[in-house]
Design a protein around this nucleic acid. Structure first.
Length: 198
DNA sequence: GAAAAGATTACCT
DNA sequence: GGTAATCTTTTCC
């Protein structure tokens, strides 16, 4: 048995432990919650980096705060591709990454925890992308098949999840669609403005 | 064509 | 806690 698990762990197949299409083809809120504790990895020319996701936000159908609210445009076209597709957009000076759940809906990846604390600061959607090296060119990447970007299942139960209002949105700001690992030091806004978690 | 509005962050008081 | 930076996308005339 030890040899068997060792074989699995050493498997060279990139899909050996990767979140598949079915994981993302679920209600967006379920995907946002289930991503907490999962690993997002990116392979760049120099190295491979990964973070354990600790904070996400759901952007759902008929959601006035969603970029897809008014239908497909040049910017948001990736939001209408297959579940597991990356939607990367630019805001001010930084880029932020989402992963598509169901058509026209997505989960904003807001913060992660680095493998080593001194590695950098992936807390915040812009910092997360900068930390991992995600660029605008990664918009439209299929994380189920890409050799550069993918998700790995969480290895252990994530612990208590906090629920609160989304950050930085000016419409539907009351909706509690932000999920985070309670008490995790890498969550970008430990205290959601206004009301309470859970 | 012009203007406004950001799913942010860093740095100011 | 407030605001400037900075630039693309979207919207409006």
């Amino acid at each position: 048995m030890a040899s068997r698990s060792a074989t699995v762990a050493r498997s060279s197949s990139p899909n050996a432990r990767r979140l598949g299409r079915a994981f993302f083809d679920r209600p967006t809120v379920a995907v946002a919650r289930a991503l907490l504790g999962a690993e997002l990895w990116v392979v760049s020319a120099r190295e491979a980096r990964g973070v354990r996701l600790v904070e996400t936000e759901a952007y759902v159908a008929r959601d006035p705060a969603s970029h897809a609210f008014r239908g497909p445009t040049a910017r948001n076209r990736s939001m209408f591709l297959a579940p597991g597709t990356l939607y990367v957009y630019r805001i001010h000076q930084v880029v932020c990454a989402n992963v598509v759940s169901r058509r026209g809906e997505a989960v904003l990846l807001r913060a992660g925890a680095p493998r080593a604390p001194l590695e950098g600061n992936p807390s915040g959607p812009g910092r997360l992308c900068r930390f991992l090296g995600i660029e605008l060119a990664d918009d439209g990447t299929d994380t189920i098949t890409s050799g550069r970007i993918g998700f790995r299942p969480r290895s252990r139960p994530p612990g208590p999840v906090s629920l609160g209002p989304r950050v930085g949105v000016s419409r539907a700001e009351h909706r509690r669609l932000r999920f985070s690992l309670a008490g995790d030091p890498w969550v970008s806004r430990p205290r959601p403005p206004g009301r309470d978690s859970r």
